[in-house]
Design a protein around this nucleic acid. Structure first.
Lengths: 148, 148
DNA sequence: CTTAGTGCAAAACCTTTGCAACTCT
DNA sequence: AGAGTTGCAAAGGTTTTGCACTAAG
């Protein structure tokens, strides 16, 4: 898991500065490990502690942290980008189960896709560096409550 | 492959009307089978034959056709939604290889994911109805032109 | 004739940008 | 000191909505 020392190091490598805003924004992800925060979500969280931190700074920081591979940008089709900490140290990614009824997003751990990735890379001569897999369907709760 | 008769039938099932605009918009997808058209793309295509067709109608029709499972909504992270004809009759989906250098999107046929889907459904009690898989990397051309 | 659909313009969102003031290194 | 960063407000781009008018069933 990323921490503030890693952040400082990653920033220094590229001559970016370690500002309190950037620390605060990263902290909001560390404090909310299970969520997929949008820019506005982050803005509302950091507002409580740092009322002067602007929304534009949130956007700029989210982009920067994605560029540094500290965050991963996600899209669940709800009209805004969402982000989560990029656990790139672990060799197996997790994917998302998106419920079409209640909209909840659940994580799913998976190793099997690595095999598929290798096969595709070989067959298509495409150098794969990342993937995103989303499953759409109905979660157990919504199945029990009856069809939608 | 979907045709106008299917469209009419699907619309009638739900008491929607078959308008010339809806036919024109679906036709633009039939005429461009390899592309992932955005609302604006569709607007520019249909404009040539139907100059009075409005952009709002394009948006409304794309949403409607997605609801009817005639189109599938896609997101490649370029800030706008894209659509393609939903080939739900075929049991194997295709996925997308997105080049991080030139931005081109290539299709990739795959059967292997069906196995994975079944396994996930069983393990997680999630009823899967659809999935989307995107690989990010570098296409052969960009690899040959040197790293980015 | 009744209900749904359209076109237009305005509004609503999310995200980006210009710029003067500010703050890390 | 100097380069990068911030906040604010304005602008940009995509998508949605209100409403009078039109067209399909």
């Amino acid at each position: 898991m990323i921490n503030m020392v890693d952040l400082k190091e990653k920033l220094r490598e590229r001559q970016y500065k370690l500002t309190s805003q950037r620390q605060t924004i990263l902290q909001s992800f560390i404090d909310n490990p299970d969520r997929h925060l949008s820019a506005e979500d982050v803005y509302n969280i950091v507002r409580l502690q740092s009322p002067d931190l602007g929304l534009a700074t949130v956007y700029r920081t989210l982009e920067l942290l994605s560029e540094l591979d500290i965050l991963q940008k996600l899209d669940f089709g709800d009209g805004r980008s969402r982000y989560e900490i990029n656990e790139m140290s672990t060799p197996h990614h997790h994917h998302h189960l998106i419920c079409l009824s209640c909209g909840r997003v659940r994580e799913f751990e998976d190793d099997l896709l690595e095999t598929l990735e290798t096969a595709i890379a070989r067959k298509s001569k495409f150098m794969i560096v990342d993937h995103q897999l989303k499953f759409y369907g109905y979660c157990q709760e919504c199945q029990e409550k009856g069809e939608d």
